[in-house]
Design a protein around this nucleic acid. Structure first.
Length: 756
RNA sequence: GAACCCGUAGCUCAGUGGUAGAGCGUUCGGUUCACAUCCGAAAGGCCAGAGGUUCGAUACCUCUCGGGUUCACCA
């Protein structure tokens, strides 16, 4: 054995050894208990980030521990198509080539992204391997595999039949730059200084930051108790506008804050959430003036075709010219909604959308956690779940993204001549308009072939089917929110509904993930699991904290503080990186990347390596000198037990205590406690204390048998945490073992001796 | 605006109703035949501040200050 442990020399080979041995693939043995974890699928075209490393370390610890304890331990790997994120990445590529997604029909674009993802998928899978993850690759899944699509489509069909899916006009968070809608959860709020314009509006002056939406105003609102304006309530006023005079109703509504601005608000139901709600209360006309391209439409007269920002400038200019602008407050600070991906301004927009009716689904999902049928660790995270379940609204599931699972709804073109279509014609020129008009010039086949997007009115007729129901149909171009499909991940990975895997391994034992996606993902999985199988998809939920950068802030590209885990893997070894990260999980809070601990555990790896060298040396020396084999413990026949000295009994006791401590800590998902226990036992008790004492022992036969016994059992305890080096040593010392052919990964876990 | 979390050795963090621990760092001393990725020793903390509960609080409660995160939002 070399003087220091060189991780780079061994890691890859050891992983192959494990995989080849079949240890990752459990047998469905009815005599054994199953233990199941489903890997939260990382982005198929992405790279491993520090959070992924922590996730894999934790899950690998659990699975190796249970496997050694004799369970049929199954850990299923997989990758996610990550709809929106991947499409954005791909579009960036297109941009480098001077192209954009609008240059392709959706089928072609989908194929291109497919190829792109397939080319990259092995990268993340290789990284999962390099982490030592003992996942069962024979069951590897991708969220766009045919069987996944089948299940997701069937679920949607069932939900539709159960009246849990509906279509409706809805005010969505639309990002004109990204060209898609975002769920409320995906919208960020940013504080910003914007000019507040005070403009003359008939008899009123009112304040707004968005003068460009005035063409969509369909009322003016004041507070019902505002004495200043009481006489106008219910009346019509005449307004001198940029496009001529027009009339508006004055409504009274409590949403108006009389203290703000002048206490008068223009109401634009098509482009503001509050106004939309107010519009519903007062039956106001909804008049959209901004299109999906982020430009003003024909209703804005001569301002049509301008982007929002251009229009704002121009409108303000013209208001000034006409003397309709009273003043501008340049120091107005407010919060604006921006999309979480690119930070672009969100434009609240009315769109027909597919919805999941959440009421009947969330009640049982709330119950199982309340009743403890699903336990959340650490306990204090549970509050977040309950609060979310109480406030969860119906779930908009349509995304205007090509890269995803297309909603299996079909529109008959003969019955829906008012479909709004955008497509590329034979000459690759973009054409859009309503179907009736387009059909005058183009065949349906040409439209279908070049189809980009289709917007069906909320009352359009459709049928739900996994196949094209007839010749004259067009399929919905919206795709599912990725959480709709990944919400069924525990089901699809386990072969729901009829496979033998499903019968044996479902429900999973633990769902382990970052607390960040408790709402987005965990809650949905519980809902789907209960809805489709009547059982929650897992028993325990363990939520780990976010790994922050060394400066204590969240890692982000823009801050330039992102840590690339691969560098640490290379420099200090995967085992050290895993252990270092685990040390940060003690109480489940977020923590800063523990660089010092990674180094400390690299040193620890070297420590246990050198204990092995020492043992090796002592055994060689002993057999050379005496020609006798050191007896194995426990050894009742040979009376070794009776010859044990006090210090021998002490270290055996300590081993027993450490085993207990590791087991108990892991039962409670206290990974850092377990790691620390084994660390201090091996370094302080075994190496610094007991090993030193053996040097002076006369009865080498006894002390060496104890030393070997304790060390080998320590390796077992440590194996789930630091799988590579422990397995390497296990193989290096194979001649000192009873069963030299055995791999550590498949060795039984140390038994706790409870007699003492 | 609301909720939650945090404030413990120089740094990063554990922790407990009975007057504190780890890793790293620092200082001093070590080429003992497993390991300098090591060994031995040492220094270093009125556990943010104030009040309360208690025989006793760093730990429980209240408030203040400081930091973080999430959620919600008014033109």
């Amino acid at each position: 054995m070399e003087k220091t442990y060189n991780h780079q020399k061994y890691e890859e080979d050891v992983y192959k050894l494990w995989e080849k041995s079949g240890a990752f693939t459990p047998k469905k043995d009815p005599k054994k208990k199953p233990y199941t974890i489903v890997l939260p699928p990382p982005n198929a075209s992405g790279k491993m980030h520090t959070g992924n490393v922590l996730m894999i370390a934790i899950e690998d610890i659990l699975i190796r521990w249970k496997r050694m304890q004799g369970y049929s331990a199954l850990w299923i790997p997989g990758t996610d198509h990550a709809g929106f994120e991947t499409q954005i990445t791909f579009e960036r590529r297109l941009k480098e080539q001077g192209k954009s997604r609008f240059d392709f029909d959706r089928a072609t674009l989908y194929k291109k992204i497919w190829v792109f993802v397939q080319e990259n998928k092995h990268l993340i899978e290789d990284q999962i391997r390099s982490m030592g993850a003992s996942v069962d690759w024979t069951r590897n899944k991708f969220t766009l595999d045919p069987d996944v699509l089948e299940t997701v489509v069937n679920t949607f069909k069932k939900m539709f039949e159960d009246r849990l899916v509906y279509r409706a006009d809805y005010m969505v968070n639309y990002c004109p730059t990204c060209g898609t809608t975002f769920a409320d959860l995906e919208v960020n709020h940013k504080e910003r200084k914007d000019p507040l314009y005070y403009m003359k509006y008939g008899p009123f002056v009112l304040a707004t930051v968005r003068p460009e939406t005035k063409f969509g105003d369909t009322a003016v609102a004041v507070h019902p108790n505002d004495k200043r304006y009481k006489k106008y309530i219910g009346k019509e006023i005449e307004v001198d506008g940029l496009l001529g005079k027009f009339k508006l109703k004055v409504i009274a509504d409590k949403f108006v804050d009389p203290e703000f601005g002048t206490g008068v608000v223009k109401v634009t139901p098509a482009h503001d959430k509050n106004d939309y709600e107010a519009g519903k209360r007062h039956h106001l006309e909804v008049k959209p003036v901004i299109g999906l391209d982020g430009k003003l439409n024909q209703k804005a007269g001569r301002f049509a075709g301008l982007t929002i920002n251009e229009a704002r400038k121009k409108v303000v200019e013209d208001l000034k010219k006409k003397g309709l602008l009273e003043k501008i407050d340049e120091n107005y600070v407010h919060t604006v909604a921006v999309c979480y991906k690119g930070g672009h301004d969100i434009e609240p927009t009315i769109l027909p959308n597919w919805f999941v009716k959440v009421g009947p689904l969330k009640e049982p999902a709330h119950e199982v956690v309340k009743k403890g049928k699903v336990k959340i660790y650490p306990k204090w995270q549970e509050v977040k779940y309950h609060r979310w379940m109480e406030s969860m609204n119906d779930w908009p599931i349509s995304r205007q993204v090509v890269w995803g699972i297309r909603i299996p709804a079909w529109y008959s073109t003969s019955e829906n001549l008012n479909l709004q279509i955008t497509f590329l014609n034979k000459d690759k020129v973009t054409k859009s308009g309503n179907l009736a008009d387009l059909l005058k010039e183009y065949s349906l086949d040409e439209i279908r072939g070049g189809l980009q997007t289709l917007i069906a009115p909320a009352d359009a007729k459709f049928s739900i089917s996994d196949k094209n129901p007839g010749k004259d149909y067009l399929q919905e171009t919206d795709t599912f929110d990725t959480w709709f499909s990944s919400g069924q991940w525990p089901l699809v990975t386990l072969g729901y509904p009829n496979s033998s895997d499903f019968k044996y391994f479902y429900p999973a034992d633990v769902l382990e993930t970052a607390w960040e996606i408790l709402r987005l993902w965990v809650s949905r999985m519980i809902m789907f699991g209960l809805y489709l199988t009547g059982k929650p998809p897992f028993k325990d939920v363990y939520l780990h904290g976010i790994v922050r950068a060394m400066d204590g802030r969240k890692m982000s590209k823009s801050l330039g503080n992102v840590i690339n885990p691969e560098e640490y893997q290379e420099e200090f070894g995967t085992d050290a990186l895993r252990m270092g990260l685990i040390s940060g999980t003690a109480n489940g809070h977020d923590f800063n990347f523990p660089r010092d601990k990674v180094i400390a555990y690299r040193n620890f790896a070297n420590k246990i390596w050198n204990i092995a060298r020492f043992i090796n040396l002592m055994f060689e020396k002993y057999s050379e000198e005496t020609g006798i084999n050191v007896p194995f413990l426990p050894d009742k026949k040979n009376k070794t037990q009776k010859l044990l000295k006090k210090e021998d009994k002490q270290i055996l006791d300590d081993l027993n205590e450490t085993t207990k401590k590791v087991d108990n800590s892991l039962e409670k998902y206290r990974f850092a406690d377990a790691a620390e226990a084994i660390y201090h036992f091996m370094w302080d008790r075994l190496a610094s204390d007991y090993l030193e004492k053996t040097k002076n022992r006369e009865d080498k036969e006894i002390s060496l048998s104890v030393l070997r016994h304790v060390y080998f059992n320590s390796l077992k305890l440590l194996h789930p945490f630091m799988p590579f080096i422990t397995e390497v040593i296990w193989q290096e010392l194979k001649d000192l073992r009873k069963r030299p052919d055995q791999l550590l990964i498949s060795t039984p876990w140390p038994v706790i001796n409870s007699k003492d």
